[in-house]
């Protein structure tokens, strides 16, 4: 049996490029104004998986993502770069899930895809920066975890050797499979799209997307089954609804406030020699500089 790798990837609003129209007048976030992107560290995760695959001929990578229907975009993005399959978990009932409920849903999908050898996630998603989903999926699937991975060192027999980043250094760990790895942004950047794969998977679609297309499109699918992306609902996963969405989320948002500036008494000054001289003198005499 081939070596099976699952990559957990999330589509996120690009919070790093928050423009002026990103916040609505009432202080809430205007998601529509933000581009939806492949979570950056999930691209590092995909590259990590691809490097494992490079060393294990015949290995297969499946991208697993939970999100709204349009999140299928990142599955295709993954296929263009060398992944083999994709699963979209989508259902209104997942809305409002915090990390615990999200990891519950993802863990069901992971179990449904068993047996597998390796699960790879990003360290954290930029929309929340929580870094929780990876370790929580590992706990729920009951496999060990290696977080902050920076490099796939290689195989030692059936075991994986992985270098991970610490605050003040690195360590190399060895783990049997299956194991869940979360990948740090300091790991290798993801390879670019492959032109051939782009042609091959350009038309890959989920069921929801297919429904919006014409009959001719369906024809293509008859002959090329690999174009069909798997799509799972709450029912497909046989998930306990009590553990999903707002119900299954222990954390609740009580209030949200816009970040407000408190205007300080501040001194505006130019950069002339006289002004800088005066500033340094006053900082020295007030013992701020000494």
């Amino acid at each position: 049996m081939s070596f099976k790798i699952l990559v957990l990837a999330k589509q996120v609003p690009d919070t790093r490029n928050v423009g002026k129209d990103a916040m609505k007048a009432d202080g809430t976030v205007n998601r529509a104004a933000l581009a939806a992107i492949f979570n950056p560290e999930d691209l590092n995760a995909l590259e990590f998986a691809l490097r494992v695959k490079d060393q294990k001929p015949g290995a297969e990578i499946t991208i697993v993502t939970m999100g709204p229907p349009r999140a299928a975009e990142i599955i295709r993005e993954g296929l263009y770069r060398g992944a083999d399959h994709g699963v979209l978990i989508t259902d209104r009932k997942f809305a409002g899930s915090d990390t615990l409920a999200t990891s519950y849903a993802l863990s069901l999908a992971v179990k449904k895809l068993a047996p597998f050898n390796l699960v790879v996630a990003g360290r954290q998603a930029i929309d929340g920066d929580t870094a929780q989903v990876g370790p929580q999926v590992a706990e729920k699937v009951n496999i060990p975890q290696i977080t902050y991975a920076e490099e796939f060192v290689g195989f030692n027999g059936d075991k994986l050797q992985i270098k991970r980043r610490l605050e003040r250094g690195v360590e190399v760990l060895e783990s049997p499979c299956p194991v869940l790895v979360t990948v740090h942004s300091s790991a290798a950047a993801c390879r670019v799209r492959n032109a051939k794969l782009l042609m091959k998977y350009k038309h890959a679609k989920t069921d929801i997307e297919l429904q919006e297309l014409s009959e001719d499109y369906w024809q293509i699918f008859e002959n090329r089954p690999y174009l069909k992306l798997i799509q799972w609902s709450v029912e497909d996963l046989q998930a306990d609804e009590e553990l999903l969405g707002l119900n299954g989320s222990p954390t609740k948002v009580k209030t949200i406030e816009n970040v407000v500036f408190t205007q300080k008494d501040s001194l505006k000054m130019g950069a002339s020699d006289g002004e800088i001289n005066k500033l340094m003198k006053s900082l020295i005499s007030s013992h701020v500089l000494g």
Binding site: T15, V18, T251, V253, K254, I256
Partner: peptide, 11 residues
């Protein structure tokens, strides 16, 4: 949300 808001979370 990228630091653009401050949230109070409770369990």
């Amino acid at each position: 949300f990228g630091g653009n808001i401050v949230a109070t979370i409770i369990n």
